[in-house]
Design a protein around this nucleic acid. Structure first.
Length: 585
RNA sequence: GGACCGGUGGAGCAGCGGAGUGCUCGUCUCCCUGUCACGGAGAAGGUCGCGGGUUCAAAUCCCGUUCGGUCCGCCA
């Protein structure tokens, strides 16, 4: 019978068999120690020369050989115990040792400090996964699935699996296309999300649906965004007309994941609801990190009469001047401020004006352009103290918010205000239904055209289309968007009008969303839902800064699986069957 | 599609115009009966990503290219 490493101390005096990998071998000439590792831990094996056959085998062992070892569990003598490992009080004196499989010298180092590059680790992921950290990540992920499933079942949600071979959707991200063999010339698409299916489930009479759903998007990745495929906790509830019902139902699960599952401190038990507009004004972002303050302060009124061109020009053309107070900002060096200036410029600012308060003096390149009363108003409204620096943004309101929002994050990182043991949650609500697309110079959907405009059909008649709100909400965790949802538009009439505002006719809507519109004609209940990004949430909960660290087999930044060498070329014959040919440019 | 950073024995890093490319880990041979990142003696292993240029001289500077990473665009 096989025994696990972790169980060895309980087996003192008896003969046991352990199987696993050689973590290290220490050959003393007349005595060999082997650290054997299995999924439960490490245990020390001892083999002496009087066991001639076993000793010979032990001399052959190398790192990561797979072995089976049988012997007596013995308590170590005082002074020989190793307090650094759980089984350090015992060792197994071997009677029998056999090699189950050999291992070549490793292409990556599994233990110790020299962790290989991510490229090597992905190429040899099957080795990388043997590391403790990766093992516990896999377990953690499985645990998280269990917590989520348990909660959803308790709340009487039914898990339904929706198709992976789905349809291309014209809105949103780039699709992965699958050529059809039986329907030559036509394509399936992998679902970007089960959005339409879950809404059809509502029409199908499922009161509450959920799924740990695979989603596919062919968009360029980031550190917090996987290439190709990712998982969502996807859910939808029928007979819900107010998004608050969804939000308050999901709060306990997410809070539980933060505290019980991840063992972190939650910033506030009450998860704040922040309207989009307010989030943009206070934090310069629709996904604010609430672990720190440094809110944006509007000085447009105080500086409305300023003759300083940098402030005057935006203010006279409808823009804004806002500021951010950085405590202890006086400690920033000139070159550090230059770095922040570059960041501000990269977000569209012309420069970065600032005032530093130090030793009772005002030190600033711009102070000479401001009046006494303006300076006083700035200090008064920002609450700046000695040692602080106030940074300014002056431009259109949108640019100011974007620039200062980015800087707020950068300052928090610089001054180490992002406590890794704290998780701050928030719901951002009331997204604008339509937004003006500066580049296309036209009105477009802000988020999702299938959510319900707040106020229904009448609201769409509003003069100012940009003031129309969507019943749509995102959950934010420490500055990451981890959930997006909304009350859906289940009314064909309203749906036509939502597109009509942008100049699309009935035919356009029916051509693209015919299946859903058709279903909605036959008694669709009002419904609402949302979807949580599992990978990103797990990343933040375990304190990783790269989402690939919480996935077993991720693709790299170029969409390549370095281990499996996918994507790859296919046979001519396979292409023929699909009525396809590769045309090289 | 764009910007920036990186590629040096099997792995991780140093060297950044001039002597023999150096260190740690690993590998191989030998020694060692209480180690636990064992120790000791020795050895092998490098087109310095690739191509071109500048120079008396290039791992080092320049240009191009490729691969990897971060960010912007993109991600309803």
């Amino acid at each position: 019978m096989r025994t696990y490493a972790v169980a060895a101390p309980e087996q003192i005096g008896s003969e046991i068999t352990v199987k696993g990998w050689v973590q290290s071998r220490r050959d003393h000439g007349g005595l060999i120690f082997i650290d054997l590792r299995d999924h439960t831990g490490i245990v020390q094996l001892v083999i002496r020369p009087d066991n001639e056959e076993g000793f010979k085998i032990a001399e052959e062992l190398r790192d990561e050989f797979v072995i089976s070892a049988t012997g007596q569990v013995a308590e170590r003598e005082d002074g020989l115990k190793n307090p650094n490992i759980p089984t350090g009080g015992v060792e197994i004196i071997l009677n029998k040792l056999s090699i189950l499989n050999r291992a070549e010298p490793l292409p990556i180092q599994l233990h110790g400090e020299n962790i290989s590059s991510e490229e090597q680790r992905l190429r040899y992921r099957f080795l990388d996964l043997r590391r403790d950290k990766m093992q516990s990540m896999l377990k953690k992920r499985a645990q998280m699935y269990k917590v989520m499933r348990t909660y959803m079942e308790e709340q009487e949600f039914t898990e339904v699996t929706t198709p992976i071979l789905a349809n291309s959707s014209p809105e949103g991200a780039r699709d992965f296309l699958i050529p059809s063999r039986l329907q030559a010339g036509k394509f399936y698409a992998l679902p970007q999300a089960p959005q339409q299916f879950k809404q059809l489930l509502m029409v199908g009479g499922v009161p509450r649906y959920y799924q740990l759903a695979a989603c596919f998007r062919d968009e360029d990745p980031r550190a917090d965004r996987l290439y190709g495929e990712f998982y969502q906790l996807d859910l939808e509830m029928s007979f819900v007309e107010d998004g608050e019902e969804v939000r308050s139902l999901m709060d306990p699960l997410i809070k539980n994941l933060v505290t019980d599952f991840a063992g972190k401190k939650i910033l506030s038990e009450e998860v704040p609801r922040i309207p989009y507009q307010e989030a943009m004004e206070r934090f310069g972002s629709d996904k604010p990190d609430l672990r720190f303050g440094m809110e944006l302060i509007d000085l447009s009124e105080e500086l409305s009469a300023s003759e300083f061109g940098v402030f005057k020009n935006p203010l006279t053309s409808g823009g804004a001047v806002k500021a951010i107070r950085v405590e202890n900002g006086a400690s920033l060096s000139r070159s550090q401020i230059d770095k922040f200036t570059d960041i501000a410029k990269s977000e569209g600012a012309g420069g970065l004006a600032y005032i530093t308060y130090e030793n009772g003096e005002v030190k600033s390149p711009i102070a000479k352009f401001l009046t006494e009363s303006e300076l006083a108003a700035i200090q008064q409204k920002t609450g700046a103290q000695d040692g602080d620096t106030v940074f300014f943004g002056a431009d259109t309101r949108a640019v100011v918010n974007k620039v200062l929002g980015r800087l707020r994050n950068e300052f928090a990182t610089h001054f180490e205000l992002k406590d890794p043991n704290v998780i701050a949650l928030a719901w951002i609500v009331d997204f604008p239904f339509y937004e003006y697309d500066e580049r296309a110079k036209k009105l477009d959907f802000g988020h999702n055209p299938f959510s319900m405009p707040k106020g229904g059909l009448e609201s769409l008649a509003a003069e100012d289309k940009q003031a129309i709100l969507a019943d749509q909400y995102d959950m934010v965790m420490n500055g990451y968007e981890i959930c997006s949802g909304g009350v859906r538009n289940h009314n064909p009439e309203v749906l036509y009008e939502v597109f009509g505002v942008l100049g699309y006719d009935k035919q356009y809507v029916e051509d693209r969303f015919g299946a859903m519109i058709n279903a909605f004609k036959f008694g669709a209940p009002p419904h609402a839902g949302c979807a949580f990004g599992i990978d990103r949430m797990l990343m933040e909960l375990v304190g990783e800064s790269n989402v690939r660290e919480v996935v077993a087999f991720p693709k790299n930044g170029s969409g390549v699986d370095l281990m499996m060498n996918s994507p790859s070329v296919v046979d001519e014959q396979q292409l023929d069957e699909l009525s396809m040919a590769i045309v090289t440019q």
